[in-house]
Simulated scan of single mutants.
Amino acid sequence: MGSKYTKRYSEECKRDAIVLVRSSGRTVTEVARELGVRPESLRNWVRREQADRGEGTAGELTSDERGELKRLRRQNREQRQTIEILKRRPSS
């Protein structure tokens, strides 16, 4: 469950942090501490960026694929709700 105090970082901020991790030779934890970001967040950003470049682990979805999956799940849920509503309607 997410905290109501969760910080939101811009895509530019995330990109800059990822570049710093990749170019500095320092650990994710060190860079996160310097930037005031949670190490878990920065690690996730780096992992997602690797997946988007096709360098993720086997079966890991890219950002586009995750977006498509989310859209399809929402569409599926809406269609199931529509079917349930139509089932409840009295037939003519």
Rank of each mutant, 00 (worst) to 15 (best):
residue 34 E to V: 00
residue 25 G to T: 07
residue 30 E to Q: 15
residue 62 T to D: 04
residue 64 D to N: 14
residue 70 K to S: 14
residue 66 R to S: 10
residue 16 D to I: 08
residue 14 K to S: 06
residue 69 L to C: 10
residue 71 R to M: 10
residue 44 N to G: 13
residue 57 T to D: 11
residue 57 T to P: 01
residue 76 N to Q: 14
residue 80 R to G: 04
residue 62 T to R: 06
residue 44 N to S: 12
residue 21 V to H: 07
residue 23 S to P: 05
residue 48 R to G: 06
residue 36 G to E: 02
residue 72 L to H: 07
residue 54 G to N: 03
residue 68 E to S: 14
residue 39 P to Q: 06
residue 38 R to S: 03
residue 53 R to C: 08
residue 34 E to D: 08
residue 24 S to L: 10
residue 50 Q to P: 02
residue 80 R to T: 09
residue 58 A to Y: 13
residue 68 E to P: 04
residue 74 R to Y: 09
residue 30 E to N: 08
residue 32 A to I: 02
residue 35 L to K: 05
residue 35 L to Q: 02
residue 11 E to T: 10
residue 80 R to V: 06
residue 44 N to R: 15
residue 32 A to R: 02
residue 19 V to H: 13
residue 41 S to Y: 07
residue 63 S to K: 10
residue 66 R to I: 13
residue 25 G to K: 12
residue 65 E to H: 08
residue 76 N to L: 14
residue 9 Y to I: 02
residue 55 E to F: 05
residue 63 S to N: 10
residue 42 L to T: 01
residue 13 C to K: 13
residue 5 Y to H: 12
residue 74 R to V: 10
residue 47 R to A: 09
residue 76 N to R: 15
residue 48 R to V: 06
residue 37 V to G: 02
residue 79 Q to F: 10
residue 68 E to Y: 13
residue 33 R to S: 08
residue 15 R to M: 09
residue 43 R to S: 11
residue 67 G to K: 15
residue 62 T to L: 08
residue 18 I to Y: 04
residue 60 E to L: 08
residue 43 R to D: 00
residue 57 T to H: 08
residue 44 N to D: 12
residue 64 D to G: 07
residue 4 K to I: 10
residue 62 T to Y: 05
residue 40 E to Y: 00
residue 18 I to M: 07
residue 57 T to Q: 11
residue 53 R to N: 01
residue 9 Y to T: 02
residue 26 R to A: 09
residue 80 R to I: 07
residue 77 R to T: 12
residue 43 R to V: 00
residue 16 D to S: 11
residue 46 V to E: 00
residue 59 G to D: 04
residue 61 L to G: 06
residue 74 R to L: 14
residue 72 L to P: 03
residue 39 P to S: 08
residue 26 R to C: 09
residue 78 E to A: 14
residue 70 K to I: 11
residue 34 E to H: 03
residue 68 E to L: 12
residue 46 V to I: 02
residue 6 T to G: 05
residue 9 Y to W: 14
residue 53 R to M: 08
residue 48 R to M: 12
residue 69 L to E: 11
residue 42 L to R: 00
residue 47 R to D: 02
residue 4 K to P: 04
residue 5 Y to L: 09
residue 20 L to D: 09
residue 56 G to F: 03
residue 52 D to Q: 00
residue 51 A to V: 05
residue 34 E to K: 06
residue 18 I to A: 01
residue 50 Q to F: 03
residue 51 A to Y: 03
